[in-house]
Amino acid sequence: MAKKKVFQISNALTEGLEETVSAAHNYTGELRVEAIPLRKMELDPENPRDLILTFEDLYNGLDKDDKNYLRKAEEKATLITLSNSIKEQGIINPVLVYKHGDKYRLIAGERRTLASILAGKSEVQAKILDTKPEELKISLLQWMENVERRDLSLWERLKNLEKILSAFAADKGMEFNRVSPTDLGRLLGCSLPHAMNFIAVLNADDKVKALIQSNKLKNLEKAALISTIKSDGIKQNAIDACIAGATLKKLKSISTQDKIQKQTTTQLPAPSTRGRQATLVNLGTTKKIHVVRLIIDSVLGHEKLTHLKKHFTDLNWADYKSINHAFKQLLKTLEQIEAE
């Protein structure tokens, strides 16, 4: 008997149709990418980045009598690599703008825009939003754009963050200082410890903040650590050490004095003198996987050991046997490192 004919719209076409409709629904009015004339672009006066190089400086050339000439020249020099790559292949990610009258105002992509001018382009690819996004959204977009950037000072990042937090707090109808590290972590998509560091620094006293502003404290982790020290004397020690270039580890050891001061009542048990002399340490056992995980994560968080992380990415955390095995492996590896 002849096979019964069945007609089907192919999977590829079905998928294409479904994806198209879904994309159209999800991004309605949000994804206009176009080449817009650079002459029609302007900077957002509220952009937290505060590059002082302006569009005019690039169009007209730097003015030697400008009191900011040196800094501007420096900024211009940092754009040259980017500008060369734009000459070669254009920008890879479009900049983000919103319509402001007959101009387009930059939300993100200041360096790309400046470098495009420098590259002699007349247009730049941009994602266009029709209206200015809400304060929270705009701050977040700028944050995302800037978060991984090295050339932003800690103070600039904090200023930006403050804006995000107050917009977020206003949005949720809560007070500014009630925003929790968890909220912040979620908002920025960063880890909890990172968010805690930010919150710590935002709550730092004026003295610490002044040091951050004057760029004497530059590192977030260090600044956060210092902000949490309670005792004034120890805090001053830590600040001095930090400015003198102390490592985070060194600062931690200074700050533990603070904790020891606070915890004078908790005494370490006196070492036992009875029985055979111990020659090894028993690491004990636990049923609680999160404890093991905490230990392993902390060890791997050590700056000299991060390269070991790759051995633990596939670990099945639900299986005691494989955790045991992994832990033993870790110990062995650590012992080898010690021996070297």
């Binding site: 076409l13 294409g16 159209a24 991004y27 009015g29 994804l31």
Partner: peptide, 24 residues
């Protein structure tokens, strides 16, 4: 014809990205 529909949906999608929400 269905392939033609696919092509037209692309134009519709592009246009809906482009327009504001009020003027879809």
């Amino acid at each position: 014809s269905i392939e033609g529909v696919y092509g037209m949906l692309q134009l519709w999608k592009q246009e809906s990205y482009y327009r504001t929400k009020e003027n879809q």
